[in-house]
C-alpha cells in the first residue's frame, strides 16, 4: 500500500488551512544535474545563514545532499554543524530568536519560501536526535506509529504493517516483537535510539537527519546504528552530524567540514579524509585542534 495515497486522502482540512507544499519551477542547477546523470540532489542548501540574535551560527553555507548517499557533517564543537542540520527541516522555527536566511531546496523547492508549511516539511525530512526520544508514556507500537496517527491514519491493518516494516528497517523487530505493548522507555538506550529511527522511518520521509545519533550509546549499540545507516541509505538520503571522525569515515559518502560557522570543505569522504584540500581540514583530521 502506498503511504502517500493515504496521506492525501486524510486531513483535507489541514490542506485548506495551510497550503500544501507549492511546486515551483525546479531550480536550474537541480535540473542540470539530473540531465547530466550525476547522482540526483535530494536537498540543497544555498547561501544558508542562521543567526541567533546577533550571533551567527552558520555563515553562508551551500551544500548538496545526494539521494541514496550519506552526507556526514564534522567539525569541532560549536562549529555550526548541528545548527545547519536543524535548518534543513525548519527546526529553528521553534527557537524564538533564530533567524534563517538563504534557501534550502527540497527536490528543487525552497522550504523557506513563504506559504510553505513547516509541518509538511518535517514529514518529508525526518530527524533523529542525540538522545533517544521515545515518548515514555506510549507503548513501543504507539511510538512507531505516532507520526501516522498524527495524519489521521486509523486503519489497524495498515498501522500494523507499517509498524513491523519500520521496526524491521530499524533492525529492532526481533528484539521487541513480543512486547510491542510495553512502554517506549522500558527498553535499553540503544534500542530506544533505534525505536526513534523506526518512528522517523514510519512516516516514509525523503531525507533523514541524524544529530549525533550514537553519542549517548555504548560501542555495540553504536555499531548497530552504523550498520543500520548503511542499510537505510539504499532508500533514503541521510545527513548525519557526528563528532566521531572514524564514524564519518565509516558510514558516509560525502563529508562536509565545518569550522566556526563556515563550511570549510565539502567532498567525497575518501578524498576529504585522505587528501583534504584545505589546511584547516587537514589540521582537524590529524588532531591538531578540535
Amino acid at each position: 500500500m502506498n503511504i502517500n495515497v493515504l496521506f492525501k486522502k486524510k486531513k483535507p482540512k489541514e490542506d485548506k488551512m495551510s497550503p500544501d507544499f507549492q511546486p515551483q519551477e525546479p531550480d536550474l542547477l537541480y535540473r542540470e544535474i539530473h540531465m547530466n546523470g550525476s547522482p540526483p540532489i535530494r536537498m540543497e542548501a544555498k547561501n544558508l545563514t542562521v543567526k541567533y540574535g546577533t550571533v551567527t551560527g552558520v555563515k553562508n553555507v551551500s551544500l548538496p545532499v545526494y539521494n541514496e548517499k550519506v552526507t556526514a557533517l564534522i567539525g569541532p564543537s560549536g562549529c555550526g554543524k548541528t545548527t545547519f542540520l536543524r535548518a534543513l527541516n525548519r527546526m529553528h522555527d521553534l527557537t524564538p530568536n533564530a533567524k534563517v536566511t538563504g534557501e534550502v531546496l527540497l527536490d528543487g523547492n525552497n522550504i523557506y519560501a513563504p506559504r510553505v508549511n513547516p509541518v509538511t516539511i518535517r514529514r518529508k525530512v525526518g530527524m533523529v536526535f542525540q538522545k533517544p526520544t521515545p515518548f515514555p508514556t506510549m507503548s513501543i507500537y504507539d511510538n512507531v506509529v505516532a507520526g501516522l496517527k498524527l495524519v489521521g491514519i486509523r486503519n489497524k491493518a495498515f498501522l500494523n504493517e507499517v509498524c513491523e516494516k519500520a521496526l524491521r528497517q530499524a533492525a529492532l523487530w526481533d528484539e521487541v516483537k513480543d512486547r510491542l505493548g510495553s512502554p517506549g522507555g522500558s527498553i535499553s538506550g540503544g534500542q530506544q535510539q533505534r525505536l526513534s529511527i523506526a518512528r522517523a522511518l514510519a512516516i516514509e520521509p525523503e531525507v533523514i537527519l541524524m544529530d549525533e545519533p550514537t553519542s549517548s550509546l555504548d560501542p555495540l549499540s553504536s555499531s548497530k546504528i552504523e550498520d543500520l545507516i548503511n542499510d537505510l541509505k539504499k532508500k533514503y538520503a541521510i545527513v548525519i552530524v557526528t563528532h566521531n571522525m572514524q564514524q564519518a569515515a565509516r558510514v558516509s559518502d560525502n563529508t562536509g567540514f565545518f569550522y566556526v560557522g563556515d563550511l570549510v570543505e565539502f567532498g567525497p569522504t575518501d578524498k576529504l579524509f585522505t587528501n583534504p584540500s584545505h589546511k584547516r581540514t587537514e589540521e582537524y583530521l590529524t588532531g591538531k585542534f578540535g
Binding site: R122, G126, F135
Partner: peptide, 24 residues
Amino acid sequence: EQREAARALGATRWEVIRMAVLPY
C-alpha cells in the same frame, strides 16, 4: 527533546502538546 521529537514527526503545535507535553 520531547517537544522536538514530536515536531520532527510533523506534529502541529497542538499535536505536540497532546502527544509529548501533556502525557509527560
